[in-house]
């Protein structure tokens, strides 16, 4: 029995997230920017009465910036929201592939992708959301001019 995944695109790449990790999809969130933060950190937004930080996934993955809908992460997995370009849909028929070769553009974030899904619309890399939310780089949103310019993990 396969698991349902929410498939989306960001920074020119196709990704998938387990539907259980997604709380909701938001179309238009009112963002409140926060100063002295990394460029991939878009700010704070209120979604369903909860204040959540919103991160530009494309920029974070060092791809092109995203400008579409926002996926709010399930509270069970953590607090956060990812701005993506396009939500393709929910697919629970896709086959999981674990030995796929990661594209060169995603090599710098290879720890976030362990497998992929082959769907009718193509290959989708499965994003490890809990690892993302727990990673030091994702948490460290402030600008450290002396050591971290936000590029390295």
């Amino acid at each position: 029995m396969s698991q349902a995944h929410v498939m989306f695109r960001a920074g020119g790449q196709s990704f998938a997230v387990a539907s259980s990790l997604v709380h909701a999809i938001h179309d238009e969130l009112v963002l409140q920017s926060v100063g002295d933060t990394k460029n991939w950190f878009l700010g704070l937004a209120v979604a369903d009465g909860v204040l959540i930080p919103v991160t530009d996934l494309g920029s974070y993955l060092k791809l092109s910036p995203s400008s579409g809908r926002t996926l709010s992460i399930s509270p069970d997995a953590g607090v956060g929201a990812l701005r993506v370009d396009e939500v393709i849909g929910v697919d629970d028929t896709a086959t999981m592939v674990s030995d796929a070769v990661l594209p060169l553009e995603l090599q710098s974030s290879s720890e976030l992708f362990s497998c992929s899904l082959d769907t009718k619309t193509g290959k989708h890399w499965v994003l490890d959301v809990p690892r993302l939310l727990q990673s030091k780089r994702f948490v460290d949103i402030g600008i450290d001019n002396s050591t971290d310019n936000g590029v390295s993990a």
């Binding site: 029995m1 396969s2 698991q3 349902a4 929410v6 387990a18 539907s19 259980s20 997604v22 709380h23 909701a24 999809i25 399930s74 939500v87 849909g89 929910v90 629970d92």
Partner: peptide
Amino acid sequence: ALNTTIRAAAATGGGET
């Protein structure tokens, strides 16, 4: 529809919707 699907998936515990 997406949110509904996601909720449905959540309701089924992440299994089939």
